[in-house]
Design a protein around this nucleic acid. Structure first.
Lengths: 187, 187
DNA sequence: AGGTTCGTTTGATATATATCAAATAAAGAC
DNA sequence: GTCTTTATTTGATATATATCAAACGAACCT
């Protein structure tokens, strides 16, 4: 729990009381490699924090798997539309290594944000970071070539490339695996 | 100011006190058609609300104008990255009709959010809506054809098409004006 | 160790959209 | 109302990436 506490404090510090009630709302999962942590949830309304390992978050679209995010290294992640709109995303979380993670349910988070000003502020800052990332992604998809998107990933998340199969990275970058393979061999 | 008050209340209701201090932090501009409301700002750190008229929000990228948003009908809008990251976006706001709008400065909004829990909640909800829109846009750019994106605009914002030149709409949809012209004539 | 499955690379072709260029059409100026 | 500028349409070609298909390589199974 210490890593989660630290990650939260970095985003926005909480009072002792807020931190206590907030942390106790988080659940913990510890799973093996190749485990489908969340398949049963039709609507995914958790925010997750990955303590250890690697997880791939994907959903199905036209009978294909779309990798929405690859989480590792003490990151927070969530299915944005599913979490906030409460619409089904059929989100799947699949571990690529033995992993540990925490999760907090939408209802708990909202209830606490309502009670504690500093938890509301924390939530606002988390949503804001997410929004900035989303905007960067819009820009990247709209104006960058597949090559440039790969270079960006290589620059900002070099460890993903070492630990995750090419096919998942391709989907995450929004290209086919063949195209990504060609990009990599051209180097 | 009544429309602004109402729009705020719809997102998240405020106490009388909060609403008073909050509304008084908003500035008002009234401008003619074809007016560059914000050209001088290298960093745009306002959230705007358009009361009347139509405005195009764009920035320059590789010597081209990229239409980031077309605002009308009592909408809020902002340059996300510029507002939250305080990085220069060289955002330009250009009115396409005689228009009236309000704006609140980043510093004022943050100060009030810090003081009043309900203003913090309002900010969180505004950021959340923005995030959901941004995600829809990611999805749209990544998986929809130009035709489908145009159809979506036609469905959800039919008035934009009537009041805004094709070239701006094309840029907003992320296609060239030639392509948009072909899409329209194919109907 | 050999066979089977899974992941990656390589090749040929198709497709959507961009780019370049020119022709119309519409709008604004005097 | 004609002239000039600006916006839109139409046409020909180029380009990045997808799709389909096959070959190759690596990893896991008993």
């Amino acid at each position: 729990m210490e890593q989660l506490r630290k990650a939260i404090t970095t985003i926005s510090p909480l009072s002792h009381e807020s931190m206590d009630v907030y942390l106790s709302a988080w659940k913990h999962w510890s799973v093996a490699k190749d485990h489908y942590l969340l398949r049963e949830h039709a609507v995914s309304d958790y925010i997750y924090f990955i303590k250890k390992g690697v997880a791939r978050i994907f959903y199905h679209k036209n009978y294909k798997e779309i990798t929405e995010w690859i989480a590792m290294d003490e990151q927070f992640f969530l299915s944005i539309t599913s979490f906030f709109n409460r619409t089904p995303s059929h989100l799947v979380i699949h571990t690529l290594e033995p992993s540990e993670m925490y999760g907090i349910h939408h209802n708990d988070f909202m209830r606490l944000a309502d009670q504690y000003h500093d938890i509301e502020r924390l939530l606002r800052k988390m949503v804001t970071s997410s929004l900035i990332l989303s905007q960067i992604r819009v820009d990247s998809i709209q104006f960058e070539s597949a090559q440039q998107r790969y270079d960006r990933l290589l620059k900002y998340s070099p460890r993903i490339i070492q630990r995750v199969p090419v096919s998942y990275i391709a989907s995450f970058l929004g290209v086919t695996l063949e195209t990504l393979s060609r990009i990599r061999s051209a180097k």
